[in-house]
């Protein structure tokens, strides 16, 4: 039973780590601000969820798990709001999104 939980934790933590690194790599590779918003979402969603779920598995049914879930809820409530705020501010300031085709209006 313990080995099963450990294995699952490994899977979740490594999966979360993968998405965190993917988000970081996307942040570096993407050509402009608006496209960088999307890999940032990877970190905020699956990256955070998988890592915290992995920690919850190890903590079991305790106060620690409750706090971890609270961290997750906070991240999910504030994450999209902050992303929306920054993208809206950039758009209002006149930053133009990068597009593939140059003849796009």
């Amino acid at each position: 039973m313990s080995a099963l939980i450990d294995g699952l934790t490994w899977l979740l933590l490594l999966g979360g780590g993968f998405f965190v690194v993917a988000g970081g790599a996307g942040l570096l590779r993407m050509p402009d601000f608006f496209t960088r918003l999307h890999p940032a979402g990877l970190v905020d969603t699956l990256g955070a969820v998988l890592i915290i779920l992995g920690l919850v598995l190890q903590a079991g049914f305790t106060q620690v798990s409750a706090k971890l879930v609270l961290v997750l809820v906070l991240l999910f409530l504030t994450g999209p709001t902050a992303t929306h705020a920054v993208s809206n501010a950039a758009l209002v300031s006149g930053l133009m999104p990068w597009t593939k085709r140059k003849d796009n209006d």
């Binding site: 965190v20 690194v21 970190v43």
Partner: peptide
Amino acid sequence: ILLVGMAF
């Protein structure tokens, strides 16, 4: 892994 992501 998280430190690598933070460096990015």
